[in-house]
Design a protein around this nucleic acid. Structure first.
Lengths: 156, 156
DNA sequence: ACATTATATATGAAAAATCATATATAATGT
DNA sequence: ACATTATATATGATTTTTCATATATAATGT
């Protein structure tokens, strides 16, 4: 066992795992001609079309201004649509298009296969426990959203 | 429970946890006038002074070229030293200076307190299990290093 | 020894991401 | 209604990071 501080430091362990596996999958994405940024936006819109831009930014882990620019690009590629909310004209809701779905859906299958591969190094008990623990940890993020006045409920 | 793909997708869960907690801690770093990049380089050198630049890059999760530039900056601030390996004059070993240690050591204490805070939302069993699982997952990264011909052993 | 190939780091251009702030709309208090 | 404050998104400048490739040294095969 290592006695370096970093090897037992949770933030490093999380960053290492996230980085290693994401880069692996991003390699597959790039081979399919899709940038990681495009993936991260579209994958959030598949199950929640119409998300407001700021909320989309929080889920995609991008800054709001970066998200504005990414959405601009994706609008240009007809992968998403931007709609101004008529109840609150400051808000922009972002919708994935049929073209966008066509692009992302085969990639979701790849993502599932890759995830299976990552998890194959763990036994069934560890696999279940890992996700359960990460879900518990995710509550801090959800709290941030509530503090900011965002709803956590699923959008229909 | 959410039925969105992403909420149960391991790579998203890992990215979310890593991002949320790292940003929290980076806030503390910035308040102390230290950039995340500086932290990530120095924290890797505290326990392994003299790491070769490419290996440092792998641990700090930066590109090699980015690491070259960060080391340049830190050399300018007298926080690290660059030494050409006389056995292999292509290699650069990077050493933390006394000044560098003086800067980083109080931050390590902050990092430990923050980690305790993060882990306080879990029970003792989950805490232990999480680190154990992340250590298992980290082996894929170690394998990458071996493939690249780098040693995993601790440097004295 | 020499040519070939591999490796380690550096460099400059390009792309990605952040930061500070502007603009527009909405909510609140008087 | 009006002023004040808050919120959502957009914009331009800046910083960070990556990408492609150059340079220097080392290792390998003949």
């Amino acid at each position: 066992m290592s006695d370096r501080f970093i090897d037992n430091y949770l933030l490093f362990q999380l960053a290492l795992a996230s980085h290693t596996f994401s880069e692996e999958f991003y390699g597959q994405l790039r081979a399919a001609g899709v940038s990681p940024a495009k993936w991260r936006i579209l994958i959030n819109l598949v199950d929640c079309p119409g998300m407001y831009l700021t909320r989309l930014a929080k889920y995609a882990l991008y800054e709001q201004s970066r998200t504005t620019k990414l959405v601009d690009q994706l609008v240009g590629e007809k992968l998403v649509e931007r709609r101004i909310d008529q109840k609150d004209r400051r808000r922009v809701s972002v919708h994935i298009t049929a073209t966008g779905r066509g692009l992302i859906e085969p990639l979701i299958e790849k993502a599932k296969l890759h995830e299976d591969d990552v998890l194959s190094s763990l036994n069934a008990s560890d696999r279940k426990r890992l996700k359960s623990i990460l879900t518990k940890l995710a509550k801090r993020h959800s709290e941030d959203m509530q503090v900011l006045g965002l709803q956590i409920v699923d959008t229909a």
